[in-house]
């Protein structure tokens, strides 16, 4: 042993102190830790079921077998577990996470009543939670069919107003503005409002990104380009590109012809 090492009693004391500290911390966090463990256990069971399903799905021989499997995909049976947990954990942020699971799975399985309960609870009790950054997208893309146009809009506005988290407000602004712009019957006033939301996104939240892909601000730029330049009645902005033979061409080369542009793929 090196002569520079601390005496035995000092090391023992340090270890004892450290252990004591951990124990005190542990005691204070006990309730939350219990809930966390419970929540993790449900998520783990769901993950396991999904992984097993993915494997079976990969091994399926043909489309018929895959279609039959799809009917049996896991998820729905976990709704009651997450609901029960969310009620038990009421007030804790884990409850927000559990309601998010309920909302997501319910949307996926077409369970309207469960989906609406989850959204209503999230909006009334957990609108300030940092764990609901996926809620705006879920509302505008999946839950909108249960909520209808007006409630979808109101739900997104609630998040914009109430949430103190940029990771929630930014997607809420983007979803709200996109929903308005996707509405063919939207009035010019509403379109103008959607534009203001997109501009606010670029000014206030230039760096907020979803889990994958470009920032909301970059997506907003795309949407604004679409409103400004790609509406019926506007001259289509020119675009230069390369065809399948490596030949450059421009959209404006086709003036004098009726042109159909088809953005497509076989994938």
């Amino acid at each position: 042993m090196s002569t520079r090492s601390r005496p035995q009693w000092m090391r023992t004391t340090l270890v004892a102190l450290a252990l004591g500290f951990v124990a005190i911390l542990g005691y204070a966090r006990d309730a939350t830790t219990d809930l966390q463990k419970k929540f993790d256990a449900i998520v783990e069971r769901l993950d396991k079921a999904e992984k097993e399903f993915a494997k079976t799905f990969e091994d399926a021989k043909d489309d018929d077998e895959r279609d039959a499997l799809r009917e049996k995909r896991p998820g729905e049976e976990f709704i009651p577990d997450f609901q029960a947990f969310a009620r038990e954990a009421k007030g804790n942020d884990l409850a927000a996470k559990a309601w998010m699971k309920v909302a997501g799975i319910s949307a996926d399985f077409g369970r309207k009543a469960d989906a609406l309960e989850a959204v209503d609870t999230l909006l009334s009790d957990y609108a300030k939670s940092p764990s609901i950054e996926n809620l705006p997208g879920l509302i505008s893309r999946n839950l909108n069919r249960f909520l209808g146009k007006e409630k979808t809009d109101a739900a997104l506005r609630t998040l914009i107003e109430k949430s103190p988290h940029k990771n929630v407000v930014a997607p809420a602004l983007f979803s709200c503005a996109s929903t308005i712009m996707g509405d063919k019957k939207a009035s010019p006033e509403r379109i103008a409002e959607a534009r203001a939301m997109m501009e606010r996104l670029q000014k206030e939240f230039p760096d907020v990104k979803p889990a994958r892909g470009a920032s909301y601000a970059a997506m907003a730029e795309g949407v604004l380009f679409e409103i400004d330049n790609l509406q019926i009645g506007k001259v289509a902005p020119d675009f230069e590109t390369i065809d399948e033979n490596g030949v450059k061409f421009k959209l404006s080369d086709y003036r004098g012809k009726v042109v159909v542009l088809d953005f497509w793929g076989m994938w």
Partner: peptide, 22 residues
């Protein structure tokens, strides 16, 4: 092109007249 034109769903179709108007 789809990025610049904000194409989010496939297929997306635009029909332009001889003056290039959408």
């Amino acid at each position: 092109w789809p990025t610049k034109w904000n194409v989010k769903s496939w297929p997306t179709i635009y029909v332009l007249d001889a003056q290039g108007v959408i």
